[in-house]
Design a protein around this nucleic acid. Structure first.
Lengths: 223, 223
DNA sequence: AATCTTTTCGACAGGATTTTACATAGATTT
DNA sequence: AAATCTATGTAAAATCCTGTCGAAAAGATT
């Protein structure tokens, strides 16, 4: 069972329907209040939580449910509006497991849901490792040879996306869509710049981010 | 090529125009019937399908094309009128890849199109093999007898296109159109040059790219 | 206001691509 | 078989692009 807390009816129904048609059981809820009620009936496997809601916002709700012993362990995916960068980190700090930026495609949505469920009760600290680079998703921390590397949000997401797709080349559009949001227009060197700063901050290990000229970037295989 | 199935002339032309000006090839079609005809000519990369149409509605059309083996894999974006909330999801359930609600902005429209096309690409086969040559599409890597061969973008595309059409001869125009994306009229040695570098880089296996005099090039059958 | 992050700009280098010009091979005609 | 013509191969030069980099503007956050 997955609870979808989202005030907009359209989106809520879309989410629920998509989940259903993928084989999940899901229930749409309009507000934090409805969620609390539902939680007394049944503890779900996952909660989708919109941040911007009239009345109680997503953070407040998250805070509350993370204090409920029964519910604490349930993974939470925050649904954020585009552009609210800081929100994401805040949500993660507060114990959310992942976030997804509106508007999003249904395929991506489903794959996030599956990913979070796969991780299991969110107990285990999910981390990605590639050679000397270690990335702790939930803690939002990156280490290179044990040395902690301070990354900004965009840099972190960039690295994460690359590491999640190790070996395969991601082009600028893909990176832009995934990290900067659904639509992003115009020709810019934004991605390049971030790749560069990322490489710099990663020091010696930075070179593992390869440029595939004319195509995009990738983190090479550990062969 | 993108097919836009939409009964309202204004909208149809607007869609086609927008796609054109973004660099896509697109064709407007008035009805399901016209779509079926067009599908016999050419399988598009994407189909935009209006739901509310006189005669056969979008769902029926979607259902039909999802039963055609050739067309099944083509991504579909449903175009729904505002208010028909439930319909959206019905379309998704039936195999559509995304939906867009009328009225919509052209920017959003384009970004959805791009997003779906990107996704569609990843569904396709992972690697092509011909004799000692192995081509990993997503990784953008090519191996010849296990040895990694560094190819530039154009060389890679050329090899890929040839391998996708193993055994059949591709003439210069086809190659130019498909890889260089433009209809050159004058004589160009561009293709030859790239074929040459490709053969060189492939070493011993390079000889499997045959020249068919007066016609074009092909990668022979593995017989 | 001060600081930090993110985006944009412009110049630049080096590689990729295309063009040019010519050589060579295959076909056709005489 | 020689002459001729066309299609293809090759090398080098010319051009075009793309990624890189420093810096600075623009936005956010404190």
């Amino acid at each position: 069972m997955i609870y979808c807390v989202e005030d907009e009816r359209n989106i809520r129904e879309l989410l629920v329907y998509t989940l259903h048609s993928t084989g999940f059981t899901a229930k749409g809820l309009e507000s934090g209040a409805q969620l609390y009620e539902a939680l007394e009936q049944e503890i779900p496997e996952l909660i989708l939580l919109d941040i911007m809601m009239p009345g109680e916002d997503g953070y407040t709700v998250l805070e509350k449910i993370k204090r409920m012993p029964e519910v604490k362990g349930v993974p939470v995916i925050m649904v954020t509006a585009k552009g609210a960068e800081f929100d994401k980190v805040k949500g993660l700090d507060m114990g959310a497991d992942d976030y997804i930026t509106k508007p999003f495609g249904m395929m991506e949505f489903i794959s996030r849901v599956k990913a979070v469920l796969r991780r299991g009760g969110s107990k285990t600290e999910e981390e990605l490792v590639h050679g000397p680079i270690q990335l702790k998703i939930k803690r939002h921390e990156v280490f290179e040879n044990g040395r902690k590397v301070e990354l900004t949000l965009k840099e972190f997401e960039l690295l994460r996306y690359l590491m999640e797709n190790r070996g395969i080349v991601l082009n600028r559009d893909q990176l832009l869509t995934r990290i900067w949001g659904y639509d992003f227009d115009g020709e810019t060197r934004t991605v390049d710049v971030h790749v560069r700063t990322l490489r710099q901050k990663l020091g010696d290990s930075g070179s593992c981010i390869e440029t595939v000229r004319g195509v995009g970037y990738r983190i090479g295989d550990a062969e």
